[in-house]
Design a protein around this nucleic acid. Sequence first.
DNA 1: GTGAAAGTTTAGCATTGGCTAAACTTTTGG
DNA 2: CCAAAAGTTTAGCCAATGCTAAACTTTCAC
Lengths: 141, 141
Amino acid sequence: MKRKISSSALRSAAFNRTRADHSHELAHDYCELIAELIDEKGEARGTDIALRMGVSNATVAKTLKRLSEQGLVEQEPYRAVFLTGEGWKLAEDGKRRHEIVEKFLLALGVSQRTAEVDSEGIEHHVSAETLKAMARFLARS
Amino acid sequence: MKRKISSSALRSAAFNRTRADHSHELAHDYCELIAELIDEKGEARGTDIALRMGVSNATVAKTLKRLSEQGLVEQEPYRAVFLTGEGWKLAEDGKRRHEIVEKFLLALGVSQRTAEVDSEGIEHHVSAETLKAMARFLARS
DNA sequence: GTGAAAGTTTAGCATTGGCTAAACTTTTGG
DNA sequence: CCAAAAGTTTAGCCAATGCTAAACTTTCAC
Ligand SMILES: [Mn+2]
Ligand SMILES: [Mn+2]
Ligand SMILES: [Mn+2]
Ligand SMILES: [Mn+2]
């Protein structure tokens, strides 16, 4: 017999998911961005990452150190940064998800600019089920 | 003559917006939740906030102090908490936005549970333009 | 009315993710 | 080839958001 789950448990689960999403967000965005830079320019340098992320060089350096401890990027001192296998996986998955969300917003009727901006935040909170629903919408629209 | 804006400037603007969204997120969620509790139970107590947010009592106490310094809530020691005029505004605006996003996801075809969970994160990254597009979609679907 | 339970606050700690300034290394132009 | 520019790293700072443990206050049950 299914006992009713307390509304607090349901609510807190949503907040917990959101906090978990946020805890991975920066790593995902960095990997995606590094992949983009390598694709566009052949390498990903700290300055370029900083410029596109909109943060200082020092912040980038510190974050890259964390990411390399987490096994997502590899770097040697004063050199451009590379993605590990794990890092590539995040980058590709992130790119796919990002594209679907952005195209979905466009299909919904917002401007290109708004789709770009809003998708940067939304992408991290879209579950597999919702992503599928967005892709389905795209396929028929 | 319109000079082309660098792709870095465009990209960093999106990340900046996302960071700004995150900096307001907790305040919005607290105000919305406090309003809900007052509506449901007549008052908002620390324990109930903690239970629904999925964090410890101590975390709630510390956060409430910040919010009261920001003029969003009012509290006296060992008593339940209340919203200021500003806090009510955030709560109502947040509720409206949250409802639109959740109903929109439902209309898109995801389960009630997924709509609840995903909307908790997504709501903070939906611009006025996108919110309007979602409302429009709801109106015709 | 009093003692235990429930709720709140405070203290102290950790991590993340920002910043500036200064030191250091690499690249580049002449 | 070498000085200046460009890029990177380190040090030290801060705020936000989480935690546990301990102290304190209020409420409840008897
Ligand atoms: Mn992305
Ligand atoms: Mn993003
Ligand atoms: Mn977010
Ligand atoms: Mn939320």
